[in-house]
Each structure stands twice: as C-alpha cells, then as structure tokens.
C-alpha cells in the first residue's frame, strides 16, 4: 500500500487534534506516514501518532525548519515526496499549512486542493464554497495530490500503526532562509480549547458592548467547555484579540455547536461559521440575519439571556 504523508500540526510538543483527524482519514487512502517538522518531538508525540495509525513517522526536528517562514517545510515535504512516492499529501487547512501546500505544489508540479471537508474514492475531495452555499467535488489531475483538510470536518478514531521512526536530515537551502522569524509573540488567552478544533464555540459581537463584558461570553464558554470567538466588530474595537476572529478574514470553524451573541450575521462572519452543525443565536433585533441560519434563536438582551443560560447549564450539569 502506498504511503500517505500527513504533515503534523503541533504546538509546544503536543500533537493537535486535526492531525489525528488526518491520520484517521489517511488510513482509508493508504498507509499513513506522519511528518514531524520543527522542534518539540518526543516519545509522547510518537506514541500519539502511532495510536492513531501512523505506520511511519518522519522526524525533521531541527530548529531552522521552523525559524523561516513556510519555505523549509515545503522543502522537507518535497524531499519526502521524491523519496517515498506517496499516494497523496495531507495537511490541515490552516493558513500556514495551506501556504506550505501551495509552495509544495509548485516544487513537485502537482495539483493542490484547499479546504476539503472530506476525501472519498479516487481521492475526490468534498469542498464547501461561497460561504457554504455550494458543495463541490474536485480532484487533482496532475502529480501527487496535495489536499488541505479543514479541522473538525472528519471524525477521529484510534487504530494503532507501527509508528516506525525515521530521522530525516534536511539541509534547508539558502533560498528557503530569506524570511526569518526573529520573534514569536504569544497573545494566548487562558486554557480554553483552540478555536478551530473546539466542538463548541461561543462568539460575541458588537452587542457585547465592551472588553470587560466579554467575561459573560467567557463564562458561558467555560460552562460548556467551549472556545471563545468574536466578530470583526469586536476584535476591531479591541475587545477581544484578533486571532479569535471568526469569519472570512478570521478563522473558519465547523463546530458541533456555535452560539452567536450580539452578532448580526454579516456575510463575512457567516463565511467562517456557516458549516457549524447546530447554530444558536442571541440578538435583540428580530430582523438580524443571523436568525436565518439559527437552529434556535432568542430575541432578547444578551446581558440577560447569556448569564441565565450559563446559570441553567451549571445547574443541570
């Protein structure tokens, strides 16, 4: 069976959930080979990747792979594609991994599909476009298919793989060292699940009114074990950091449950959350477009409704 390369997403040495989704998906397409790029590899990471089906784990954990923007990781994958001749390369559809996929596509002269929500027979990818309005099937017709798969789009199942480790030495070329990361600034907020991976997302918009008042959104999120998101109006106002913005120019989320409080439902916001399985909206304006999407809507003041909902959830636990 051909290998299927899966680029591992990791943060502080921890394998992210989307990688387990990709490994689960890769098992249907061939023999999953995890590719670890950058520092932080550990026995724990190895065990996790093997638990979800990695037959092989390619490890390239030198620092310079992560010290330059995107290009070294594309070089690493290109090298592995030429040595392993995989059936496909899967990456997560995050901003950076899509860029890696894009550069890889040029290096190996292969087609690339972004934002797949599933992969079927013949490596045909399902995509949801135009803010969720149209479902498309597409496939790569030249080279080794490179597919970027959206987080949270596929279920995770454990099934042990051999996890045979192979160290890869990459000599990062000078051409790939031209954009150097000189500082990483973390603006992390608390220990909540990551926005794109969370099963539940609670988002606040302009209706929240202030940075301080975002605490009612956070409390609701915490009662559900959810991530916190925000509309652009809220991030522009500085009430919540930009990396929590949901929408066209923020994160695309596909959680099981999305709760929008004080968000009108502008098209740019919908583009980032329309594929959520269940949508609940709280808004004082009965005409707000968000209600067109909502499975359940409450017309009312979020300052009343949100705390009451939080309290009810805590009571019923």
């Amino acid at each position: 069976m051909s290998e299927v390369l899966v680029l591992v997403e990791h943060v502080e040495g921890q394998v992210k959930k989307v990688t387990l989704e990709l490994l689960t998906l890769a098992r249907k397409l061939g023999a999953p080979s995890a590719v670890w790029a950058g520092p932080g590899y550990s026995a724990e990471a190895k065990a996790k990747l093997a638990e979800y089906g990695a037959e092989k784990i390619y490890v390239a954990d030198s620092a310079d792979i992560a010290d330059y923007v995107v290009a070294p990781k594309a070089e690493l994958l290109a090298q592995l594609v030429s040595s392993a001749s995989p059936a496909a390369v899967l990456v997560a559809a995050t901003a950076e991994a899509k860029e890696i996929a894009g550069r890889l596509a040029i290096k190996i002269d292969s087609g690339v599909l972004t934002d797949a929500v599933g992969i079927g027979e013949g490596l045909v990818a399902d995509q949801s476009i135009f803010g969720g309005g149209v479902n498309v099937q597409s496939r790569v017709t030249k080279g080794t298919p490179i597919i970027a798969v959206r987080p949270n789009a596929t279920p995770v199942e454990a099934a042990a793989g051999a996890g045979a480790e192979e160290q890869v030495s990459v000599a990062v070329s000078d051409a790939a060292k031209v954009a150097k990361v000189v500082e990483r600034v973390k603006e992390e907020k608390g220990a909540r699940p990551e926005l794109t991976e969370a099963a539940i997302v609670v988002s606040g918009g302009r209706g929240v009114g202030s940075a301080e008042n975002f605490s009612i959104i956070e409390k609701l999120a915490d009662s559900l074990g959810a991530a916190v998101g925000a509309s652009r109006a809220a991030t522009d106002a500085g009430w919540y950091p930009h990396q929590f913005q949901v929408g066209q120019t923020g994160k695309t989320v596909s959680p099981q449950l999305y709760i929008a409080a004080g968000i009108s439902g502008a098209i740019q916001h919908r583009a980032g959350m329309q594929t959520a399985k269940t949508i609940v909206a709280i808004n004082k304006d009965p005409e707000a477009p968000i209600f067109e999407l909502a499975d359940y809507g409450v017309v009312g003041d979020l300052n009343q409704v949100v705390p009451q909902l939080t309290e009810e959830i805590s009571k019923r636990k």
């Binding site: 498309v136 709280i282 209600f291 017309v299 009312g300």
Partner: peptide
C-alpha cells in the same frame, strides 16, 4: 492541475425556532 468533477447548491438549512425572551430566554 485539478478539476471540479461535480457541484450542487448546498441544501438550505431547515428553519429554526425563534423565541422572544420573556425573562426565560
């Protein structure tokens, strides 16, 4: 390097339940 093999309009979301807050929202 790739092709769209098929496409269709996404099925519309079923209309949801909208309630007005009467103190119990």
């Amino acid at each position: 390097w790739s092709e769209v093999t098929d496409f269709a309009a996404a099925p519309p979301r079923a209309a949801g339940t909208i309630v007005k807050d009467e103190g119990d929202g």
